[in-house]
Write a protein that binds this DNA or RNA. Structure first.
Lengths: 204, 204
DNA sequence: CTAATAATTGTCCCATGGGTCAATTCTTGA
DNA sequence: TCAAGAATTGACCCATGGGACAATTATTAG
C-alpha cells in the first residue's frame, strides 16, 4: 500500500534533516523546530513520525552509520586478498564525500550523548563490532588471532582519532594523509611482529 | 588583598563544578542551576563570577586541560633520553586517575562544541600544539624531522582514539592496553623507517 | 460522490533555562 | 562601631523548547 510508503519517506526525510541540523548546531542547539524547518515541515509532523526527540536522533545516528557502512561494504565486495580487504576498510572510512568536517561534527555530538542514552550506546556498540569484524576479515590472514585483535583495536582507535582531528581542526588532516597514516600503522605493526618474514632470526 | 582571593577561589570552585556537571549531564544537559547546585551555591553567584554560560564552560575546558597537562609535564621533567620523553608523554596521557570514563565524557562534550565556539577552538588548538611539541621533543632524537612530524600526528590521533573508545565503551580498553598500543605504534613506525639502524643496508 | 482514514498544521500549555536586578548579608578597614 | 564595598541570594522576566491536541486538509477505497 502507498500509505506506508509515505510514512517511510517522511521518516527518512526527517532523519536526514535531523542529521543536517546536528551538523550545523550540535546536540545542544538541535531543536525539533529547527529539524522541522530543515525538512520544510511543521514541528508537529516531527512528533507525528517520531515518539520524541530522543528517538529521532537515535534514528539519525542509524542513518549516518548506514551511509558510512555502505561505503566500506561496497569496497569490501571488490576485495580479494586479505590485504585488499584491509585497505577496503581503511579507504572506505575516509571516502572523499564522507570524510568532511560537518559530518564529523554531527558524529561527535552523537558520541557525546552515548553515555546518557542506552539506545545510542547500543547502536555505537553494533557499529564498532562490525568495524572490528570487517578489519578482522582481512587481518586474520596476516597475523595470529591475538595479534589481529590487537591491531584491529589500534586501527579503529587511529581512524577515530583522525576523524576527531578533522572535526577539531578542519584542514589539519587530509583524506590522503589519513589513509597513509593508517596504512603505515598497519605495515609497521605487521612488520614488527613477523621478523621471520623479513629474513631476521628469532627475537622475543 | 584577600577580597580577590575569594573571587579566585569561587571561580575555581565553579569551574570544577561546571566540569563535574558536564561529566554527568553532557553539554546538552548542563545548566547553570545544576552547576550552582553542584557547587553548593545559588545560580546568581555563577553569573556573578562568569559573564555567561559560554565563558564558564570555556574556563572549565582550560581547567581540565591544565590537569591533563600537569601530568605530562611532571613526567617530562624526569625524562632524560628522547625515548624517555616519548614515554613520558604517552604514559602521562593515560594516568590512572585521569583515564576514566566520566572525564572522557565531559571532554567529548566540550569537543563537540568546538566547531561552534571560537574560544573553545582556540583552547583546543593550543592543547594540540603543546601535545605535538611535547611529542616532538622526544621524536626529533629518533627520526628525521619529516618523519617525526608524521609520527606525532599518528600518536596524537591514536591517543585521542583510545580515549574515545573509553568514552564510548567504558571497560573496553584499559590503561595498560592503551599505553601498550601507543608504544607499539611508535616502535613499529620507528623500526620501519630506520632499517639502517637495525643493521640492514639502504632501502627507499 | 462520499465516508473513512491518514497527513499535516497551528495553537496551546507548561517547564526550564539564561540572564537581570534589587535587596540582603558578610567583611573589613578605619 | 560603623560605613563602604564585596559576596550572595532570591525573585523576576522573557524566550524557547518539548510535547499534546483539536482542527483542517489530502487521499483513498467502495
Amino acid at each position: 500500500m502507498k500509505l506506508s510508503r509515505i510514512s517511510d519517506i517522511r521518516r527518512r526525510e526527517l532523519r536526514q534533516a535531523a542529521f543536517a541540523v546536528l551538523e550545523r548546531e550540535g546536540i545542544a542547539g538541535a531543536t525539533l523546530e529547527k529539524v522541522a524547518a530543515q525538512a520544510g515541515a511543521s514541528k508537529g509532523i516531527v512528533l507525528h513520525y517520531f515518539r520524541n526527540k530522543q528517538e529521532l536522533f537515535e534514528h539519525a545516528m542509524r542513518e549516518a552509520n548506514a551511509v558510512l557502512c555502505h561505503a566500506v561494504i561496497a569496497r569490501l565486495r571488490r576485495a580479494r586478498t586479505p590485504m585488499e580487504r584491509l585497505d577496503a576498510v581503511i579507504e572506505g572510512n575516509f571516502e572523499e564525500h564522507l570524510f568532511l568536517p560537518p559530518l564529523c561534527h554531527a558524529w561527535l555530538s552523537l558520541c557525546a550523548e552515548v553515555p546518557r542514552d542506552d539506545k545510542l550506546a547500543r547502536i555505537q556498540k553494533v557499529i564498532h563490532a562490525r568495524m572490528r569484524s570487517n578489519l578482522l576479515s582481512g587481518l586474520r590472514g596476516l597475523a595470529s588471532s591475538v595479534e589481529a585483535d590487537d591491531i584491529a583495536l589500534g586501527v579503529t582507535a587511529l581512524i577515530d582519532g583522525l576523524w576527531l582531528r578533522l572535526g577539531l581542526q578542519p584542514g589539519s588532516v587530509s583524506r590522503e594523509q589519513a589513509i597513509r597514516q593508517v596504512k603505515e600503522y598497519v605495515a609497521g605493526r605487521l612488520a614488527m611482529r613477523r621478523p621471520a618474514a623479513v629474513g631476521l632470526a628469532s627475537a622475543g
